[in-house]
């Protein structure tokens, strides 16, 4: 099972992806697990991706499916993308769909 560390506050859900790879070997389980978490939370989501050093198109597909499962009004912010992960978002232009922030911002 993909390891996702959940830190819920009143205002938001911070999910840390504790996996080094989001690839075809775990994409489906990753999608199901993350979708379940964000749908249960019904809050703005910050996803800390700084431990992920590889993602392929099936991992990207999982991220898109989770984004689509959330109402458009709820933000899904991706933080701490490593170069290999950032490349996939950029080449597929999905960096225009997700809100991507360079590093962890101080908690409001």
């Amino acid at each position: 099972m993909p390891t996702l560390i959940i830190n819920e506050t009143e205002a938001q859900l911070v999910v840390t992806v504790d996996e080094t790879r989001i690839d075809a070997a775990i994409a489906t389980r990753f999608k199901d697990r993350l979708r379940e978490i964000v749908l249960r939370g019904r809050k703005p989501v910050r996803l800390d991706m700084s431990r992920v050093d590889f993602m392929d198109s099936s991992g990207l597909g999982a991220m898109i499916a989770v984004r689509k499962a959330l109402p458009e009004s709820l933000p899904l912010v991706l933080e701490g993308l490593t170069p290999n992960v950032e490349r996939v978002f950029r080449l597929t232009r999905m960096d225009s769909v997700f809100e991507i922030r360079p590093a962890t911002t101080p908690q409001a």
Binding site: S57, G61, I64, T92, V97
Partner: peptide, 21 residues
């Protein structure tokens, strides 16, 4: 790239685009 319809984002179809690029 697969058409980027903001109301119905593609979840696949990126593989061969990436390979070719």
């Amino acid at each position: 790239l697969p058409a980027l319809d903001p109301l119905d984002l593609p979840e696949g179809g990126f593989g061969w685009f990436l390979i070719q690029g």
